[in-house]
Amino acid sequence: MTRPAGQEPHIELEGLRFQRDGRPIFEDVSLSIPRGKVTAIMGPSGTGKTTLLRLVTGQLLPERGSIRVDGQEVTGIGREALYRLRKRIGFLFQHGALLTDLDVYENVAFPLREHTQLPDCLIHHLVMTKLQSVGLRGAARLMPSQLSGGMARRVGLARAVVMDPELVLYDEPFAGLDPISMGVIVRLIREINEALGLTSVIVSHDIEEVSQVADWAWIIADGRIIAGGTPEELRGEESPWVRQFMHRLSDGPVPFHFPARDYPEDLREVPR
């Protein structure tokens, strides 16, 4: 289960350890993400999926272990090198992170304007085709504050792929979408991946959608990788951890609760 067989890795994590405020988020995580495929990272809320993406893009530093993207070590490289690397990565933020003083159009155009000298007509063409593919061409002149959460996510998606990156990291692309846009986005991610031959990483807990779109999935829980495989393999997996997650059982070894002390004790003691 350590790696998808016979494929060149785009991202490789080895012996990763990371903690926050003294609480370990990752104990010892090793995984690899194959080039040119769609890989899902799944796990219950609060296990550190977003944290993992932030580590991969050098926004956070691990305490120990190595992170290689495209064969290049990410930890401890300088700002310049990090920025060069990030220009080749598209990132969809869990909450969109649109720039609130620019409209939808300018938000999608932002990376192009910052990093290229393309003429306006070409930028217009690129922006409009990306907006069309997420179904928001008509919303081009709305401000981010006028969008719903799902719309903002779709604009974020258009922005993440507008530079034609080699690697796209999607943090919860399906959350908050209605069934129709969900279907469109699932297909879109698949299409982008095949048309451009890029590597996609999807963080999600929507098992159905992930099964449709992913070639490979890793499941994280409790600071460790508990399983990896194709979605079909994971469905047939016998381990109680995986069974619980894949079949949405409420009872099992995967904790639903944030670490806490004894419940009755907490109830008895009124904080003052």
Binding site: Y83, R86, F91, A97
Partner: peptide, 11 residues
């Protein structure tokens, strides 16, 4: 998160 979003876009 707009500033970290920019940093993520290498800006």
């Amino acid at each position: 998160d707009q500033l970290s979003g920019m940093e993520m876009m290498a800006v």
